[in-house]
Simulated assay, not measured.
Amino acid sequence: MKFYLCIDDTDNLDSIGTGTIAEQIQEKIIRQGYGPCSLVTRHQLYIHEDIPYTSHNSSMCFYGEAPDDALATIIDLATKHLDTVAAVGSDPGLCVLAYDDSCHYDELMEFGIQAKQTILTKDDAMACARNHQLHLSEHGGTGQGIIGALAGVGLRLFGCDGEIKGALKNAVINQSYTVADLKNLPEVEQVLDLTSKEPLADTTLIRLGNRSKTVLYRHHYVLFVRQDKNNQYVTIPKAEIRQLGEHFYV
């Protein structure tokens, strides 16, 4: 079984972040003997004054592999962890999907895309969840986090949204690496030119001039780079990566 798991709205300004909690759940799943699991992706959702969020309104998602009869155990592990560590004042939501190759998830992916553009409700989320027979649950507060949790699964399935949590943490700023070197990092599968979106040769040198991020693009972990005034390829700052928007990635 391939499963997708996403959480949202688990933190407050003083607590550990939702991404860290997602990684803790992932670690518990692996200790249970399941896996492997993917890296965690951060999915930016709609920012609006009528939507409560801690700082960025983003959900955290990963997928993994497990025996066909493990779904209930995975949900139980995630539920107990959320109930233990979710911050006071948060409105946590959990979504778990047992992926089925024979199913069509267009509605679920569209829900995720809409969650980046407009205000959705818990009723919207529950209706979509029922249509796909997936697990969606509230874990405190208003339970508003179920919207982002469902959206995160949809966006991860979509495959052209989200940044990789902790990307390039093992690379050194202001040093140059070949594309082949970068692709040895777990969070880099491809290095693409920002303008052409074409892959660069393994021998191409890339200068890490800033703390950049890899993103989920066409279901791959991608580092986008561009040429500077000296025609040398350099990484793109994290803040600029976050401003590219969903239309760039399609």
Rank of each mutant, 00 (worst) to 15 (best):
L194C: 05
V191A: 06
D161R: 03
L82C: 10
E49C: 03
S58A: 12
A66Q: 05
Y105S: 10
T195Q: 13
L194Y: 10
V225E: 00
A86P: 07
T235F: 02
Q32S: 12
M1R: 09
G141L: 08
D8R: 02
Q232F: 05
S176M: 00
I30A: 09
A22N: 01
V153E: 02
L134E: 03
H56V: 10
T79I: 08
G112D: 09
C6P: 04
Y46I: 01
A127I: 12
D161H: 12
S176R: 01
R31K: 13
K213R: 10
A22Y: 04
I146T: 04
G112C: 08
S38I: 11
T79Y: 10
R42G: 07
V191Q: 06
F158H: 15
G89C: 12
V88E: 15
T20L: 11
T142L: 13
I206A: 00
C6V: 03
A127G: 01
V188M: 10
H247S: 15
H43N: 14
G64I: 14
K213C: 11
I51N: 01
K28I: 14
E27L: 12
V234S: 07
Y53R: 07
A125H: 09
R226D: 06
I75R: 02
S59Y: 00
C103N: 15
A201K: 05
T178R: 03
